[in-house]
């Protein structure tokens, strides 16, 4: 009988841990776009393999962006972006980790729109800066959806632009994100 009890206990623990995981919502195909507008050139890049997770229990959010996964219109731009500006071999990822107050309706995942203020730290090119932005989290049938944008100053993250291309690359880059989170299942 004793072994069976242990078995039951194990099953209970298994259920407990998976129950905990339902506070977490994940996206594997988050979309991040950036746009640089400069006198000579507009540069755009797109990444649809961004990972992000929201923990409703703790009111935490994290984003993980693979720099190499940004796609450009021109292959040469992509090479320069990785090699000269972002140094993706040295700094393969950009990350964000932040906190927000979880509204009650969101906690219970009732359909609706919940504006929240997320504040945390963004790391680009190995340089971490604080970032606070207001986003709307929209709950639709058990998924959390959000679309937001913010601006990043290239200089803030120690990304150097040589004077010869200063008219090709904007000092401030607009970043747009579109995430659709689904309940996290292992």
């Amino acid at each position: 009988m004793k072994p069976l009890k242990l078995l039951n206990l194990s099953m209970a623990m298994l259920l407990a841990t998976s129950g905990m995981a339902q506070d977490r919502f994940l996206t594997r195909n988050g979309e991040v776009k950036f746009y640089s507008h400069a006198p000579l050139e507009d540069i755009e890049a797109f990444n649809d393999k961004v990972l992000s997770v929201i923990d409703l229990n703790k009111g935490e959010v994290a984003v993980d962006i693979l720099i190499k996964a940004f796609q450009f219109e021109k292959a040469l731009m992509q090479e320069h972006f990785n090699e000269n500006y972002m140094e993706s071999a040295k700094y393969p990822k950009s990350t964000f980790k932040g906190k927000f107050e979880v509204p009650d309706g969101l906690k219970s995942m009732s359909n609706g729109t919940y504006p929240v203020t997320v504040s945390g730290d963004i790391t680009i090119h190995g340089v971490t800066k604080p970032l606070t932005t207001r986003v709307e989290l929209v709950v639709i049938n058990g998924t959390i959806n959000t679309e937001f944008s913010f601006k990043v100053k290239v200089k803030d993250h120690d990304i150097k632009i040589p004077s010869v291309v200063v008219r090709n690359i904007a000092e401030e880059v607009e970043v747009t994100a579109n995430f659709k989170y689904e309940p996290y299942q292992r």
Binding site: M13, S52, L66, R186
Partner: peptide, 20 residues
């Protein structure tokens, strides 16, 4: 069970690294 609870990382960024 042990493996499960160990990999259910508290650190969200660590969890994303595992998911990648």
């Amino acid at each position: 069970v042990l493996g499960h609870s160990l990999s259910a990382q508290d650190d969200l960024l660590g969890m994303l690294s595992d998911e990648r």
